[in-house]
Design a protein around this nucleic acid. Sequence first.
DNA 1: CTCGTATATATCGCACACGATTAAATCGTA
DNA 2: TACGATTTAATCGTGTGCGATATATACGAG
Lengths: 156, 156
Amino acid sequence: MDNEVSPDKFMLRPEAMLCFDLYATHHAVGQVYQPLLAGLGLTYPQYLVMIVLWEMDGITVGDLGARLDLTSSTLTPLIKRLESQGLVLRQRDTRDERKVRVRLTATGRDLEAAARHIPDCVAEAFGLPQARLEEVHALLGQLRRALKAHAGSRPA
Amino acid sequence: MDNEVSPDKFMLRPEAMLCFDLYATHHAVGQVYQPLLAGLGLTYPQYLVMIVLWEMDGITVGDLGARLDLTSSTLTPLIKRLESQGLVLRQRDTRDERKVRVRLTATGRDLEAAARHIPDCVAEAFGLPQARLEEVHALLGQLRRALKAHAGSRPA
DNA sequence: CTCGTATATATCGCACACGATTAAATCGTA
DNA sequence: TACGATTTAATCGTGTGCGATATATACGAG
């Protein structure tokens, strides 16, 4: 009978909306990054990997995954694409041959300078005062810790 | 020389961290939903589609995309999977044959009751008081509007 | 030294997600 | 009426993501 629009049901569930907020905001951020990164030939996840590498060159695949919350099934192909672009090298650790260390090439290091303008562009796109951004950062950090604690405590 | 860990560089850029916050929190939410949805045979994006359908049965693919910020290239295969599970039907609009309307089957409608416990489970996983969640909701909404305004104003 | 276990990465199959393109239906206007 | 422009979905290629599995190396008990 009343299968018409009834926005209340949707709008009145902040928990439900929150999941959608994160989903949609994540997308929106991707849309802002994409044109900025296109010039560098990077995707958004590839950019995140490069950020970590600029800071911790030679990190292992596992540590990279711990940092970005990704598994080798995602990282291995991604890193191989970076390698085929000449940005990184993959080398087995000589002490522990199970580990693979990801090292920047000169090209990969140089890309940092070319990417230096991006954070400011994004901050501008956010369009909120610094204090507001810190708020979001803090809240999301709290949220993420809570979610992870919950997931960890209930491996089903 | 100092290509060792220097977390400062990363930590001192809230804009950069914010993008990662969204990325990581989005993942964490997915991890919480997944076991809950597995029982229903739904993925997280499929669940979002069903939420919209439970509220607006018979919506067109385009309107669904506007609501969820997805294009037909994502939605068409997703909806076909829902169809093959017997949850929805895809019907051309008789007035405008370009449009495809997505209608719930009886099974699809019944799934709403089976999914009714999920929001509470997620709210619990969030582990923050309601007021806090509203804060996040409000901030993300602001953020998303700002991002979209920016993307819209600069189609490059 | 050897065998079983644990760890680190890689591989595979499936499901998003998006840009670019295509195809069909509709609309506007001559 | 006819025909070009617009709108709506579908399709295609590439790149994530993840669970399950495979493989190779390291470790440890005996």
